[in-house]
């Protein structure tokens, strides 16, 4: 059983926050075999991947987790990212601000092009940084209904694409209709947990605004919906989105409360020392 061991993709995370989840992203250094025909599913996927997501970002958000009983708990967190440059891979720091008992808990990812990514965790109660092992791309992101792949995006080359509907439309919460494509992504890995995704992509933004995620049995297991899409600093950002898991009857809502891009973050802001000291 071979699974791609990809932990996290900071730039792709930025893509989520900025442009929408369930994206495709290029693997570091990966190039499509040939330029896709304009308007084709491959072309749409490539355009989603190629969007500007900023050099760095700082996003404050609320993560609302609802369990099968309908009880909700809320976490507030800040995600800062720094795009890869030169030999250095992407960097991501997730800091939890609430609830009180996990305040200060931090989570740091160093992505490497040539070796396994490194992940670190800081627990205030322990007072020390600990390394933690990587997770599969389709596993839960910090205990939510979203997977790392949902957040970080998919490798462009891990999927094949098919245009389902070239003249679809997406209606936003204000009732305005926007032209969209409906494309289907099929995983090349036969062991993928979610081998098929159908996504609705807004044409003017190259942002996925709806998606249905299917499991190996061909059943729809997760459903992603965007409620609010804005363009702070000229970069499309999903401000409010929900992933509902129909199998577990749980749902996760992410609401971005503040989005800042290209703020000049340095690499030091993503060190283990910063992970530990930044919590104090």
């Amino acid at each position: 059983m071979s699974r791609s061991r990809r932990v996290f993709r900071p730039a792709a995370l930025a893509v989520f926050v900025i442009a929408g989840a369930l994206m495709v992203t290029a693997a570091p250094g990966a190039q499509p075999a040939a330029a896709p025909v304009e308007g084709s599913a491959d072309w749409v996927a490539a355009r989603i991947d190629a969007r500007d997501t900023g050099r760095d970002s700082r996003l404050a958000m609320t993560m609302r987790l609802a369990d099968r009983q309908g009880r909700t708990r809320e976490r507030t967190l800040v995600i800062t990212t720094l795009a890869a440059a030169g030999a250095r891979g992407d960097r991501v720091l997730v800091r939890f601000l609430g609830p009180a008992d996990i305040r200060g808990t931090g989570f740091l990812v160093w992505e490497h092009a040539q070796k396994d990514d490194e992940r670190f965790l800081y627990l205030p109660a322990l007072g020390r940084v600990r390394r933690i092992a990587g997770a599969e791309a389709q596993e839960s992101f910090v205990g939510s209904d979203l997977s790392y792949e949902d957040i970080g995006g998919r490798r462009l080359t891990d999927y094949t694409y098919r245009m389902v509907e070239a003249t679809a439309a997406w209606t936003d919460t204000q009732g305005a209709s926007h032209p969209a494509w409906r494309i289907e992504s099929l995983a090349k890995d036969a062991g993928a947990r979610y081998p098929k995704v159908q996504s609705l992509v807004r044409k003017d933004a190259f942002v996925i605004v709806e998606a249905q995620v299917f499991n190996r049995r061909g059943e729809r297991e997760k459903q992603y919906t965007v409620s609010r899409l804005e363009r702070p600093g000229g970069i499309w950002t999903v401000m409010d989105a929900t992933m509902a898991n129909e199998a577990t009857r749980t749902r996760t809502t992410l609401v971005v409360t503040e989005a800042r891009y290209n703020t000049g973050l340095a690499e030091d802001a993503f060190s283990r020392r910063e992970l530990e000291q930044g919590a104090r």
Partner: peptide, 16 residues
């Protein structure tokens, strides 16, 4: 430590 239980549960629940 205060918060230790909640944080360790949080760590355990990070994965699927």
């Amino acid at each position: 430590a205060p918060g230790g239980i909640a944080q360790e549960l949080f760590v355990f629940g990070l994965s699927d």
